[in-house]
């Protein structure tokens, strides 16, 4: 009797943890509608922007969950999104083949991820070193290519007509949904996902439970690479061109988005795929709200500060909840 009560209570708490980020998303959505209409802007235009930005962030973040569940991180994912999109444009322009472009984008994205993970896990270079190095190198090379090829235009692109048929809501939603379902499946219903989460919870114990730490780190990065590839592709579908600043801040935004989605940055068993999707859209909403409210009025950059404060607050609250359960017995 007492046991079922406890179980129920746990379930309730679990449910609440799940629902809180969704509630936040809805509230942010409401606030955006209010802010936009009070300023007399066009709501449909804003929703379009937010959807397109949100889809890209959500897709890349969904793949990144695999890395974050290990308790690791990768801020170079934005740079590799830019880099793979850039190479994709080059390939299209020299072959005129859409399938080849898509293949290239995925190949390059997964390749970058593999490189990061091999550097980190096989050569034991600390993650924050590899990720910052990868970020600088990839964005520098991409910028170099873009300015060389793009010249005065400041960007390179593919003809809009090529991707025009794909630039619509159902297609993008479908892409996001398929990828999310795939990731949820791998994450929760395969040995791979279960082992990744366990590895994030306690690497020492995971190793002593027969989990090959390096192998799983590489798998995680490959999954993240797939997300990057999709993100790069969707970016091209939305704006068929790339500039040196395309996708620039995605790397950091993922971190914020995942936390907004209610997942602890320490990874482990409380990692959830939906955190990426819910958090991704929440973050983009918040960002746009702040842009309208603050930047249009006062100094630029304040929105960054506000969202950073928001971020720290969320981290504090989630980790507080976490700490109280840790008693050495």
């Amino acid at each position: 009797m007492a046991q079922t009560k406890l179980t129920k209570k746990n379930r309730l708490r679990e449910l609440l943890v799940t629902l809180l980020p969704i509630a936040a998303l809805l509230i942010l959505f409401g606030v955006l509608c209010m802010v936009v209409s009070s300023r007399g802007y066009r709501l449909d235009m804003y929703l379009r922007i937010i959807f397109n930005e949100g889809v890209v962030l959500a897709v890349v973040a969904t793949g990144a969950i695999f890395i974050y569940s290990l308790g690791s991180f990768d801020i170079s994912l934005g740079a590799s999104t830019l880099f793979s999109a850039t190479i994709g444009v080059l390939v299209y322009n020299s072959t005129q083949s859409l399938p080849l472009m898509i293949l290239t984008i995925f190949g390059v994205a997964v390749g970058c991820s593999l490189l990061s993970s091999v550097l980190a896990s096989v050569f034991h270079i600390p993650v924050f070193v590899t990720t910052v190095a990868m970020m600088s190198v990839l964005s520098a090379v991409a910028a170099q290519i873009i300015t060389t090829k793009g010249g005065a235009l400041g960007g390179i692109g593919i003809p809009a007509a090529v991707v025009e048929p794909l630039d619509n809501l159902p297609f993008k939603l479908a892409v996001l949904a398929v990828f999310a379902v795939l990731c949820v499946f791998v994450f929760n219903f395969t040995k791979i996902g279960r082992r990744l989460k366990f590895l994030g919870s306690n690497p020492v114990c995971a190793k002593l439970s027969g989990i090959k730490v390096n192998v799983y780190a590489i798998i995680a990065f490959v999954m993240a690479g797939l997300g990057v590839g999709l993100g790069a592709f969707l970016t091209l579908v939305y704006t068929p061109s790339v500039t040196p600043t395309t996708a620039g801040s995605i790397g950091m935004n993922i971190l914020v988005a995942i936390v907004f989605g209610g997942m602890p940055i320490s990874g482990g068993s409380r990692s959830r795929i939906y955190a990426a999707i819910v958090g991704g859209f929440s973050y983009i909403l918040l960002n746009n709200i702040l842009k309208i409210v603050i930047d249009s009025g006062a100094g630029y950059g304040i929105s960054q500060i506000v969202s950073a404060v928001f971020f720290l607050a969320v981290v504090y609250v989630t980790s507080m909840n976490y700490r109280t359960k840790l008693l050495p017995r």
Binding site: F198, S201, V204, C205, L208, G268, S269, K325, L326
Partner: peptide, 13 residues
Amino acid sequence: DVESLALNTSIRD
């Protein structure tokens, strides 16, 4: 607590 169990994880896992 370090080598045999992941503490902040369920009994099930």
